[in-house]
Design a protein around this nucleic acid. Sequence first.
DNA 1: GCAGCATCATAGCAATGCTAGACATTGTGT
DNA 2: ACACAATGTCTAGCATTGCTATGATGCTGC
Lengths: 197, 197
Amino acid sequence: MSAIAKRRERERAQRHQLIITAARELAEAEGWEAVTTRRLAERVEYSQPVLYSHFDGKEAILRAVAVEGFGELAARLRRARLATPEPPQALHAVCRAYLEFATEQPALYQAMFVLPTDVKFAHAETPPPLRAAFDEFVSCFPSDSPRRELFAEVTWSALHGMAALSDSGRIPPNGQTERLDFLVAQIAGTSSGPAAL
Amino acid sequence: MSAIAKRRERERAQRHQLIITAARELAEAEGWEAVTTRRLAERVEYSQPVLYSHFDGKEAILRAVAVEGFGELAARLRRARLATPEPPQALHAVCRAYLEFATEQPALYQAMFVLPTDVKFAHAETPPPLRAAFDEFVSCFPSDSPRRELFAEVTWSALHGMAALSDSGRIPPNGQTERLDFLVAQIAGTSSGPAAL
DNA sequence: GCAGCATCATAGCAATGCTAGACATTGTGT
DNA sequence: ACACAATGTCTAGCATTGCTATGATGCTGC
């Protein structure tokens, strides 16, 4: 490949990322309903068709934003878990990190977990960052338990419920920490469950 | 008011309900993105402007569908709770009823809890059926506990997470009953929580 | 039976996602 | 160095969306 072709590819990749970032920022600033192809094109200082040379449509842009978010979420959960090696506190830290992520970047969180998507979860073509994020929850439970995945699913579901209902104004956003504390206490602390965590 | 005026009001109320039902059925059959004002108008065999003489816009129709759903959900949860008087089983029954409601009528559930809405939750102008549904969860916990509302919030959040993630294909729909069993076991069965439920 | 009014539909607006074609600008071969 | 090809970009437009102003229709009340 010639040098100029490489340069063009670089520029193209840059623009690709620029579009994703612009969509994300615009959504975070004014909500996803404000992210139209025209406004997005104006923001990246190109015309609309350029968007379609990079993505298969608005849906695909959304997917790209979501996948980027999966990577960041996985990294964040991992950091939280490794920073607190004691298992019970680790679970608590990971859950808190999850909720912080959701509240600090609500639009990104919506793209990942609320808006309709074609991204495959728990599937062969699942984006690795997504699987990695989920595995952080799994890692909070004893490795000898055959029901680790179940525990992780329920924990994740509960957190998602809290995040989603809070963000959409369906439960008061204030009580989040109390709810979090209660949740992990219940998940971590009973003999019928992941005992002696 | 004259008799004919009464008749017209009756017809008007009928049409009002007809629109709500049509929107709900159409959404249940093809998803909310297929519910356009034109298709809805065609389905009720009126022209579009008629919709706007009944509702302030598409959003308002959605709200009406959601409120109708709140009533049905509250009734369903109530039946489930009263059918099983023992407290621990009652919680389990109510939670199962909630998940069944969500899976049997996914579009209705979305209108109530996923789609953006202006409906006020935990507020003065909260629709009574919604408050009633939430109270069914509260009633599953001992009346002397000052943290009943917290327990109910977390339980509801967890259930919503399971329902939402399952419906959008983000967790496999199969394990729902196992997740449900685990969840209520954890919520109901620890000394740090609603002990001896 | 006729004036007046409420009711409804036709037609149209701005904005949306998306695409076809013209237009440059850039790179290539002689 | 110059004409030609190819790549990339924009202008203009289509169909569809939510919503509304205007005009036709039919019923009500005198």
